[in-house]
Design a protein around this nucleic acid. Structure first.
Length: 270
DNA sequence: AATGGGGCCTGATAGC
DNA sequence: TGCTATCAGGCCCCAT
């Protein structure tokens, strides 16, 4: 399941193949994704890709006319393949380029999205309300502490809230809270400034390390060249329910928070 | 205003 | 064996 590191790894994987190349055609085999793919996506045809950016978990394929906004949802994958490459099940969208390559979007669960942001439109609604990037200097312990005052919801749901900070999904929230020794169920408003100052660098380092390792491959994720990511072997709690804690050997517990699997060590996380 | 839950989807797996 | 039920979960949106 692509979170920020997986999206960033995908961005780095595809950019060299499509940057400064012209879009020659777009083929939509199934446009019924999370939202219908808008007709205006065809404004990208004839455009040269200036760069591939990222905002939160959205990939931004930028041109002079506008930006294609792609989201991988739960099961989406992007790869760059030569024209004539066999079309597989769930290959919903092809963006063809003048170098005879195709950017191909595959998404079994269709929770992903392909949207269009014309250069003369205001910022797309999916991007407007996003909080800061975790690597943005404004994302500090003090920042989290200030926003968390009076918040009754759990710390885990708090750091997974895109209005607070983007890109921290379920896997990395579990991991970061374990490393910080914070119980995932603790109300965000009851956590001290000092602990937020410990937590924030841990979130940043966890995400950075995952990017270096090519992301986390559980079932779905693959890098743009088809290789898996290698961060899964560094996961300390996610997916380890019932196994011993790496610190104290206490058996790890699993609860559900906001309908999401939450694994933690009741001994190490308070 | 803040918070919790539903719904979108398919594939893998568990259970009968 | 082959069916059905359950779970995975990012994110918008609606109800409370």
């Amino acid at each position: 399941m692509p979170e920020l590191p997986e999206v960033e790894v995908t961005r780095m994987g595809i950019e060299p193949h499509i940057k400064q190349h012209k879009v020659t055609n777009i083929i939509i085999r199934n446009g019924r994704l999370r939202w219908p793919i808008p007709e205006q996506i065809n404004e990208l045809i004839g455009q040269t890709i200036e760069q591939v950016g990222r905002r939160a978990k959205y990939l931004l394929i930028e041109s002079e006319a506008g930006t294609a906004i792609l989201h991988l949802g739960m099961s989406g994958k992007l790869c760059v393949v030569p024209k004539e490459t066999e079309i597989l099940k769930h290959d919903h969208v092809d963006i063809e380029f003048d170098n005879q390559m195709i950017l191909r979007f595959n998404d079994p669960r269709r929770f992903g999205a392909v949207l269009w942001q014309s250069c003369d439109e205001p910022m797309h609604s999916v991007l407007v309300h996003l909080g800061p990037e975790p690597f943005d200097p404004v994302f500090t312990g003090d920042y989290l502490y200030q926003l968390s005052r009076d918040k009754k919801s759990s710390i885990k749901q708090f750091i997974m809230d895109n209005k607070i900070v983007v890109g921290v999904g379920n896997i990395y929230a579990n991991e970061a809270l374990f490393k910080a020794g914070i119980h995932p169920k603790r109300p965000a408003g009851n956590i001290s400034k000092k602990r937020y100052q410990q937590l924030v660098p841990i979130i940043i380092e966890t995400l950075q390390r995952a990017i270096e390792q090519g992301g986390t491959t559980l079932k779905d994720f693959a890098q743009a060249d088809g290789k898996p990511g290698y961060f899964a072997q560094e996961l300390l709690v996610y997916g380890r329910k019932g196994l011993p804690c790496v610190n104290c050997e206490q058996i790890l517990d699993e609860i559900r928070l906001g309908q999401r699997s939450t694994v933690f060590c009741k001994n190490c996380q308070k």
